[in-house]
Write a protein that binds this DNA or RNA. Structure first.
Lengths: 189, 189
DNA sequence: TAGTATAGTAAACATTTGTTCACTTTGTCA
DNA sequence: TGACAAAGTGAACAAATGTTTACTATACTA
């Protein structure tokens, strides 16, 4: 069964962060001829999980991706092979790994936009910020995560997303360090 | 400068989903002797970004990870090498890729727990659900995403996280298909 | 300015790689 | 039962891999 082999290769990949070589696949699958591996590999290429660049074997995006289902009101969200939508989280969330980092959120000043204490936000430090963006900013010497706004005069200020907190107008200076690209929350261990 | 080489290797990895071979690194770095590559590779192993298993080269978890910063009230969130906290999103969010999938959220029945229309949720279909978990369930033939609760008699029902919607008590049957392990929201392209 | 560590070169190497060939075993179903 | 496709074997192969050696250029520092 080919799907077993896929699972085994994925397990290997998640453990070793690389694909197994032919020799290693021999062990994994309990086979003894490299030709068998060769055949399996090309089956996996046909299926679209692996690809070749010259002689080098590499996983495709599909290899890493989870199936994405839509919630149809009546009837189960389509599961099996019918779905052609796959998403790799790392790819989806972090376009520019070199200039991104994660920030653990403290405080409840952004609850209304669905950002809670303990959530992680992906911050990108290169992109330009526009009004409406959630930004990591230094306002009068203090670092904070808020919504960027502009008043009638076009001067920027910071707005919480929680009725209990007032907007923050900079007395001296307001520096935008990066903008929030994504929000990540883990619910259960 | 070693950090440039790190960037270049990371770029290659994010593009090809595999590490470059020595021959490919020669091109990338503009060098002409494999010994130079050999030295660089072992420098990267020392730094903890790569590792060797036998002869095989593989990236470490650190290779994929983003630095995690904490927001200190006064003073900038520590950036550089002081921080030893790194997080790989794929690893963090999806413990069990084989039995997980993504679901695109439709509707606003969970806004109070910070799950909005258009968000992605990671669903794990093997874990047992407990009251308080957000679950993907089939209630009387309809699929939905709600909070699992139990009434005084211990019978399960589904509760939205939005005051505008009432709790759902199953007339015929309530099947839990999976539980929400994580919430993912992308804010900007 | 001389001395020394660092970074790079070039060639040679044993291994391991992926690939191909001809052949055998296994299982299916008509 | 027999025929045929699918799956596996084992050996042979060129090409590419990572490693080692000895030597040279570059840059730093005392």
């Amino acid at each position: 069964m080919i799907s077993e082999k896929i699972s085994q290769i994925k397990k290997f990949y998640y453990k070793h962060k690389r694909l197994p070589s032919y020799a290693e696949m021999l062990k994994i699958f309990g086979l003894s001829s490299k030709k068998s591996i060769y055949d399996i590999v090309y089956k996996l290429i046909d299926v679209g999980l692996l690809k070749k660049e010259g002689k080098k074997l590499a996983p495709t995006t599909k290899f890493f991706s989870l199936p994405v289902l839509g919630l149809v009101k009546a009837g189960f969200p389509i599961l099996a092979d019918e779905t052609r939508d796959y998403l790799s989280l790392d790819d989806y969330l972090i376009e520019d790994p070199q200039s991104s980092f994660l920030l653990r959120v403290s405080g409840d000043s952004l609850v209304e936009v669905g950002i809670f204490e303990g959530d992680y936000v992906v911050i990108n430090k290169t992109k330009t910020a526009y009004p409406g963006d959630i930004v990591l900013a230094e306002i009068d010497g203090e670092w904070t995560l808020k919504i960027l706004r502009k008043d009638q005069q076009g001067s920027p200020y910071l707005q919480p997303a929680n009725p209990r907190y007032p907007p923050l107008y900079p007395k001296l200076k307001l520096d935008i360090f990066g903008i929030v690209k994504a929000v990540i929350r883990k619910l259960r261990n």
